[in-house]
Simulated assay, not measured.
Amino acid sequence: MKNAGPDTAEILHDASRDWSQQPYRDNYLALFEQSLFCMANLDLEFRIMEANQHFARQFDWRPGQGMERDFCELLHPSVQGKLKNELIRLADGQSPRFADHLVAMGAQEAVFRGEVTGIAVRSGVGRVDRILVLVDPEDSENGPQIISARRKLFSPMHARILEGVAAGESTVQLATKLFLSRGGVEYHVSSLLRKLKVTNRPALISKSYSLGVFAVGQWPPRVRPEFVSD
């Protein structure tokens, strides 16, 4: 994460403060408007109510665009469920803050990675009345990867081959299970390598995970349905 500096660290240190009181309110507004972070205020249904210029720029929004949009819609399917649960805990007052890895869909459906921090902001009566999110995109030498989570990348056969490779199955095992010749399996694997622009099986699986093709924490691996054509 970027060096937030002592002022930012102090302002964000205690999420249970009453931010409606001075001087915290002035500090909060200054942080929101001047921070180098991408920042947004969410209501308790996770709709974006306010976003600073860095947040808008990350998603290629014009001034005022994106307001009242569900923040969770910006998240990649590979992290959407987990981060939504974290936000629910904030809104319910079960947790004051969280920090986690982020994969999100930016401008033109470009996937970018980084860190996200969520903070429950409390009102004068101590109840959570909004959520502050800070997004810190990681620097990438190659720039963001362009891929749509809604794009059907794989045929059903390619999906089964990819799952088998991810599970460590050999060409012979895949051929037996899928009623293919060994040459047929190798043909499909070569097609997958070209599709994802990688050169070998380990890279194929690593890139598939990085793009959210596989559901996180599931074994044996399963390709997410939204990536498979009907």
Rank of each mutant, 00 (worst) to 15 (best):
R127F: 14
D136P: 04
R224Q: 12
Y187C: 02
G164P: 02
S210I: 12
L83T: 01
A120N: 06
K82A: 14
A203K: 12
Q173S: 05
T8Y: 07
I161N: 03
I205Y: 06
R89H: 10
P225T: 08
L134H: 00
V223F: 11
E109A: 12
Y209S: 14
T199S: 13
G212I: 07
G164K: 08
L44P: 00
E226H: 09
E10H: 14
A107S: 08
E169C: 06
D230L: 11
F227C: 06
S20W: 07
T117K: 08
A167M: 06
R57W: 09
L31S: 03
V213N: 07
Y24W: 08
K197S: 15
Y28E: 00
C72P: 12
P144L: 07
V228P: 04
M157F: 04
W19N: 05
P63K: 05
Q94P: 02
S208V: 05
R127G: 14
F55H: 02
K2V: 05
T199L: 10
I131S: 02
F32A: 00
S181T: 14
H158G: 11
A175E: 08
N200F: 11
P202I: 01
E186D: 05
S16N: 12
A104G: 08
D14R: 00
Y187G: 10
D139C: 11
M39W: 03
T117H: 11
G212A: 02
V135L: 06
N85S: 15
C38S: 13
G66F: 00
L174G: 00
L75Q: 10
L44F: 01
A30Q: 07
H54V: 05
G143C: 07
K197A: 11
G93Y: 13
N41M: 10
F112P: 12
L87C: 12
A149V: 03
A215T: 06
P23D: 02
F59H: 10
F214A: 08
F214S: 03
H13V: 09
E10Y: 13
E226R: 04
A15P: 07
Q65R: 03
G66K: 01
D136W: 02
L31V: 12
L211R: 11
R150E: 01
Q80W: 05
A149I: 03
E163F: 02
S95F: 06
Q94F: 08
Y187W: 06
K195S: 15
E169F: 08
K82W: 10
L192I: 03
G143T: 07
S95Y: 06
I146M: 09
L178R: 04
R122Q: 10
F37A: 05
